[in-house]
Every structure is written in C-alpha cells, then in structure tokens.
Nucleic acid binder design. Structure first.
Lengths: 168, 168
DNA sequence: ATTATAAGTCAGCTTTGTTGACTTTCCAAC
DNA sequence: GTTGGAAAGTCAACAAAGCTGACTTATAAT
C-alpha cells in the first residue's frame, strides 16, 4: 500500500473497488454520528436542537452576517431558519441589528450568553476533532481536509473558503 | 490497535489552532451536505427520504439482518425504523422473514425492486465519492479514512468494522 | 413611480426522530 | 410444566425541523 502511495498526482490511476467506496460511504455516516453526538447531548438538555447549534456556530464565525447570507450557508429556507432565529433572539442569545447602509438587512450577532453557549458546544466538538486528528496523525489531517473539500458542492466550497478567509 | 498508532504519533507534536479545528468542523458540515445531496435528489422524486436510503443501504450490505441489529447500526429507535421499514415492505422493496430459530426476529432482505433502488442511490453516491478521492489523490484517501475512523464513537467503530469484514 | 429585494409572518404539510403502552414469543428459574 | 421476565416488534401520539405558498412591510434600485 505504501508503494501505491508514492502516487502524487491526481491524474494517476486510482483503482477503487465498489467495496472500498462503500466503506468510505459508511465511514462518513458513522463519523458524522460521532461528530454531532457531543453537541447534541448538550443541546438536548436545553430546549435547543441541531439547527440552533448551526445558527449559533455560523453567527459566531461571521459576526454581523445578514439573515440572507446565513440562509445560503445553512442551505435552508428562511421560514425554517426564522423559527430557530426567533427563539434565539427571544432567549437573548442572538442580537439582530438593522443595517446602517441598507436598512432592509438585519445583521446578526451573538450576545454574551450566546457566545457562552457557542463556546460550550464547540469546546466539545473541537475536543473530539482534536482527538481524532491526534490519533490519525498530521499527514492524515491534510488528506482528510482534501477529500472533504472535494466532496462539497461547488458553491459550498466557495462559502467554506469565504469563511476561512474572513477569519484571518 | 489504536494504542499503537497513538503511540506512534504521540511524540509528534500536533499544533492545532482553534481556527484549524473550526475549519475542520465546517468542512465536515459542508461535505456532508454534498455527500447526501445526490441521493436526496433522487429520493425526493419518489415518496422516500434519507431514512429509507439508510435502511436500504444497510439491508443490502448485511442481507438477513434482524430489525434489532439494524437498529443498532442506524442509531435510532425501533419505532422510528419501523415506520420506514413498513413502507418499504408494503411497497415491495424489502422482504421480512420470520426467524426460523427465533420466531420473534424478522430477517430483512431486499427484493429485486429494492436492490434496484439501492443501486440507483449508491451509484450516485459512489460516483461523488470516487470523484472526491480522485481529486484528492491516493494519500489523501488513507488520511481521510483514518480521521473518520477516529471520529466515530467506539461502538460505531466496532459496527463499521463488522460490516467491512462481513463483506469479504 | 414602479419594480425588486430583504426580512419577516402565518398556515399547513412532510419526514424522521422521540416515549409510552401493548402483544407475541422465547427462555430460564422454580 | 408453569410462570415470570426479557426481547422483538407494532400502534399511537407527539416534537423538531425541514418544506411550499401566500402575504406584508420597509427599503433600494431603476
């Protein structure tokens, strides 16, 4: 296997059996369960769900983002997001500010309480991610990220890149 | 086992910034969207959802499996699985046979129609997986799999392994 | 002035998860 | 042998979170 890993270029032949691909698919499924398990546990103790987590995560990541932008990132309808956002605002975790330049827009920010929840959730998730990285080793991390990136839809890849650059 | 691979890397320092971990988390989120996009599109044209896909996938993978076993793999309640299973059986995609040795058990099999759906769904998903692997290169694939494995819960890792071995 | 966009709301529906209560079947202890 | 508990499966009711469609309000752009 390490002979084959001498292959450096993507135009080399990659022989992938049906079975190997199925294993990759299953690994993705099982890993995603683990990936969401810790935050889900925390959230279920409060009155929140995975949808709240995602909203809080991306508001933290791109403070001041508009509702419309968040919609695009999450890939849900505004009605669906609105339900979640409304409870977060009512509960004082998220603040919505009318745009200064374009007053139609609402810019979203975490309050201190919101930031605290975000920290709690992402601490758990980062701990698992860190442990997985550590167990798999530094080379694996690069490969992991490369495959994930290639698996995204094109427009999601764009959004993912935008978030990375926005936070440097 | 994982102790060995952990020991192998334990002397290697892995500096992981908060930012790098967050990027990994987001990559996982976006990639999972892509991962499920193609089957979801196919399923939405029929009266089925992601839950049906998962059931069909794992019945194909482990023909004759019991409901209870499937429950453990999918990580849902039997009541939740039952609803999905019932429609699949009614529609003639899955056959349920009363156990010969233990009549409480139901053994599950895909019918020809069920196998056809499975093929259609997994063709799409495998195509994306294959493309991602090809784009990322052979080394990346190894790393990808290693990180995913490390990200699973322990019992899921067991189940994942069992499926791999069962199909050789 | 008209049209388009951003945000939000209301209503109603679907999928897929949950708990709780129940039946049938099996097995093991008595 | 009987019985009492555990396991497998089913039925009912509910909750989370997605969807579509129709509509309002405020603002921006043409």
């Amino acid at each position: 296997m390490s002979d084959r890993s001498a292959a450096q270029h993507s135009d080399m032949l990659l022989f992938l059996t049906d079975e190997q691909l199925r294993q990759g698919i299953e690994a993705m499924f099982f890993a995603y369960q683990g990936f969401t398990a810790d935050p889900d546990r925390i959230l279920s103790e409060m009155a929140y769900g995975r949808a709240h987590h995602r909203a809080v995560h991306f508001i933290n990541r791109a403070p001041g983002t508009t509702v419309n932008n968040l919609l695009g990132i999450l890939g849900v309808t505004k009605q669906s997001l609105n339900r979640v956002l409304r409870t977060l605002i009512e509960d004082g975790l998220v603040q919505s500010k009318v745009g200064r330049v374009d007053k139609r827009e609402r810019h979203l920010f975490l309050t201190e309480a919101g930031a605290e929840l975000e920290r709690k959730l992402s601490d758990a998730q980062r701990a698992r991610m860190r442990a997985a990285y550590r167990e798999a080793g530094p080379e694996a991390v690069t490969g992991f990220r490369a495959v994930l990136e290639a698996m995204m839809d094109k427009d999601m890849r764009r959004k993912s890149r935008a978030l990375k650059e926005g936070s440097t």
